[in-house]
């Protein structure tokens, strides 16, 4: 199972046939394993990793540090879920250290993100403070380098 996930993490488009051949397992087993992972939520989804800078209409992305008042019984969970549900939020993590939530927010421009923070995020009861850091340049995302290494040409035939 771990090997299967590793392969899918490297290439979400790898077909069950190819994976089965690589793992030396019957293709039906691999299909069943993938289905099981999808149903149990181990695999949350599949998406392309896009370099938005190259795409041109890059939009903006910001990391927002959020401090929260924890609640009896649930800690930060209720508020974190509430924040995570906004469609502008692409990722949301509970952190150790100086703040509680790291929230990644995507938008078309600075104003759109700023409006989301001031009108939606900071007005939620229980949010003590926010600090917004706009992303300036991407060097690596989801394991992919923005500037791929040049392909090295090996000798086509070697001993």
């Amino acid at each position: 199972m771990e090997k299967l996930l590793e392969l899918l993490q490297q290439d979400g488009q790898a077909g069950p046939e190819t994976i089965a051949a690589q793992l030396g397992r019957p293709v039906e087993d691999v299909r069943a394993m993938i289905k099981e992972c999808e149903e149990s939520g181990v695999i949350l989804g599949y998406h392309a990793v896009i370099d938005r800078e190259k795409f041109g209409n890059a939009g903006v992305s910001a990391l927002i540090e959020v401090r929260l008042t924890p609640e009896r019984g649930g800690g930060f969970d209720r508020l974190a879920h509430r924040i995570a549900r906004f469609e502008q939020v692409s990722s949301c993590y509970l952190m150790s250290g100086a703040y509680d939530l790291a929230v990644i927010v995507e938008g078309n421009d600075l104003r759109e993100v700023a409006r989301f923070v001031s009108e939606k995020l900071s007005t939620i009861e229980g949010v003590i403070s926010t600090a917004t850091h706009f992303q300036l340049k991407i060097y690596k995302q989801n394991g992919f380098l923005s500037k791929a290494e040049d392909e090295v040409r090996r000798l086509p035939v070697a001993p």
């Binding site: 000798l155 086509p156 070697a158």
Partner: peptide, 19 residues
């Protein structure tokens, strides 16, 4: 000998490497 044949051909998938 074989190397000389392969070099210069495009679209070859080489399983002849040793690294």
């Amino acid at each position: 000998d074989f190397f000389d044949l392969v070099v210069g051909r495009d679209d070859v998938i080489s399983l002849g490497v040793g690294e």
